[in-house]
Amino acid sequence: MAKDKQSFEEDLKRLQKIVEELAEGKLTLGESLKKYEEGVKLAQGCSQALSDAQRKVELLMKKEGKSSLEEFDEKGIKGD
């Protein structure tokens, strides 16, 4: 399951902030290591979300005003 868009963006922003803070070099060693650890985790999480191979292709159907999702069969495509 792909990561939620919002949390991905938040994670990415957090990661960027951590990189900036670390680059400034004003943190203590303990703080630096803590941030570094968090940053590495965020980076891994983000790139994993992007590399996730699982996906769904579905059809949004409407019957009597109600929406439902159906599996989409890609073999059914004829092409124009």
Binding site: L22, G25, L29, S32, Y36, L50, S51
Partner: peptide, 19 residues
């Protein structure tokens, strides 16, 4: 994005090494 994350990871490593 993958490239950026990779770059950020490098910067992280660089910064902690620098520290």
């Amino acid at each position: 994005l993958l490239a950026e994350i990779d770059n950020l990871q490098h910067q992280l490593n660089f910064s902690i090494q620098e520290t």
